[in-house]
Computed example of a mutant assay.
Amino acid sequence: MRWWMRHEARQSERRAPIVPEDARRLIDAGFDLVVETSTRRAFPAREYAAAGCRVVPPGSWTKAPPEDWVLGLGEPPAEPWPLRHRHVFFGHAYRGRPAGAALLERFAAGGGELLDLEHLVDGKGTRLAAFGYWAGYAGAALAVLHRAGLLTLPVAPLTRPELEERLRLCRRSARAGRAVSGGAVSVLVTGADGRCGRGARDALAAADVDTTGWGPRDTTPLPRGRLLAHDVLIHAIGPDHPVPPFLTRADLSVPGRRLSLLCDISCDLGSPFDAVPVYDRLTDWDRPVRRLPGTGRPLDVIAIDNLATLLPVESSRDFSAALTPHLLALATGTTSGQEPWERSQNAFRRATAARAARRVA
C-alpha cells in the first residue's frame, strides 16, 4: 500500500498529518510512504528521509498511479481539478458550506473518493483523530492576547512554551489592569467539556483569566442575557445538526451588551450549522481580528479556520499519534480497524448520491 503525504496548498498551513517518528512506525509496518517536500511544514523533509520515506517535490502525487492513496490536511490545490485518487483529508464537504459542493464536483469529475477525516469516528460519532484541543487552546490564547494589547502581527507559529510565556505576560498585564479599573475580564466558553472547550479553558487558566464554562445543560434554553453579560465569548461548539443561534445580529443591538469579543472556533460560516451568524467572512493570520461594522458597541471577531497551526509541532504530534494506529489498521484489514474508515466512506457515498439525485431532479 503506497501513500503520498502531499504538500499543503494553503500558505498558512504548518502542520503535518503524520510526523517523522510515526512515519517510521508506518515504514516498519510495511508502508510505502512518499512525502512531498514543503518549506512551510514544521517538520523538515530530512527527518522523513531519515525515517525511511521517499522524499519527492511538491505536486508529485498528481502523477501517482490511481490505486495509490493521498494523505493531507486541507483541500488539495485547485489543479488538477478532477480528483482521481482515494484521498484522506479534512474536506468539510457535507456541512452545507459553499466550498463543499465544489469539492464533491472535483471527485465526481475524476472518479476519486474522499475518506474525510472529519468522519473518521467511533460508534458514538466521536472523532478518532482531531485538532480540536489545540484549536481551542490557540483561539483562546489569541483572544487573551488581543484583549491585553499583546497580539503582534502577522501572527507566526509558536511552540507551547513560547505561547505560554506570552500568556504569562497577559496575566501580569491583567493584574495591573484590575488594580486600575477594579474589575476583571469575564470569559464564557461554550462547549466547555469538549476537545475545543478543554483546550480553551487550559489557555485561559494559563493567563489567569476568570472563565465560565457552559455545556448542553447550560444552553437549553439559552440564557441570552447572561451570555451578553460576558466580555468575551469563546464559541467551541461544532454541532452535527442545525441548532438555534447562540448569537445573532439583533443581539448586538441589545442595550447594555457587555460582549465585545467573539472567538469562533467552529468557523461554520455559510453552513446551516453556524450557531453564531454575526460575521460574513473569516479572519486570517495576517489579520486575525476584525471589528464588525454597524454594531453600536464594538464587537471584534476572531474566526480563523486552521487555528491549531499556531502550534504546529504539538498539534501535529498529537494528531499523528491518534491517526497512525488507524492507518495501520486500514493496511492490515482487521474488521474492527476497518469500521471507522467505512463510516467515512459511507458519508462520502451518501453525499455524492444526494448530489446526483439533486442533479436529476
Rank of each mutant, 00 (worst) to 15 (best):
G197L: 07
P340F: 01
S260D: 14
L73H: 03
P65F: 10
D268K: 09
I234H: 01
L115V: 09
R198S: 11
E105V: 04
L142I: 14
G91Q: 07
H235A: 15
V209W: 07
V35Q: 00
L128M: 13
C267I: 08
R359A: 15
G110F: 05
R46G: 06
I302L: 15
E314L: 08
G296D: 08
L269W: 06
A64R: 08
P288G: 10
D231L: 06
L145V: 14
R359P: 01
W4G: 01
R172C: 06
E79Y: 03
G30V: 12
V70Q: 01
S173Q: 14
V360F: 04
G72S: 10
D116C: 05
A140P: 11
T309V: 14
V88K: 00
P216Q: 08
R25F: 03
L188W: 01
I18N: 01
G225Y: 00
R95I: 13
L153Q: 12
L151Y: 07
P44Y: 06
H87Y: 15
A322S: 15
S271N: 03
L323E: 08
A49R: 14
A42P: 00
L204K: 01
G52M: 04
F273S: 08
V187H: 02
P239Y: 04
V243C: 13
R349E: 11
V360M: 05
H241F: 06
S316P: 02
T335C: 04
D208W: 10
A49F: 04
R317L: 10
A140M: 08
L150W: 03
G296C: 09
P76S: 07
S60G: 07
A101H: 07
F107T: 09
R40I: 04
K124I: 00
G191M: 08
A174S: 13
L228P: 04
G194N: 03
L71V: 12
V313F: 12
S12P: 00
H85K: 06
C267T: 15
A229S: 15
G296I: 09
V88E: 01
S315K: 06
A308T: 02
T159S: 15
G149E: 10
F131S: 01
D202Q: 13
D284A: 12
H85A: 13
A329V: 07
R54G: 11
L233V: 09
A206F: 04
R171M: 11
R97E: 15
L117G: 03
L330I: 12
R195N: 14
A357L: 12
G149K: 10
K124W: 06
F43Y: 05
D318H: 13
P66R: 14
G337I: 00
L204E: 02
T309C: 13
D116R: 00
S253D: 14
L117A: 07
L247A: 02
C267A: 14
D251H: 15
D318Y: 00
R281F: 05
I237D: 00
V56L: 12
R201K: 12
R297P: 11
R147G: 11
P244N: 05
T295R: 07
P272E: 09
A192Q: 01
V301D: 09
R160A: 13
Q11L: 12
A140R: 02
I302M: 06
S181T: 15
D231H: 10
V254N: 05
G111Q: 10
G52W: 02
R257H: 12
R95N: 11
D286K: 05
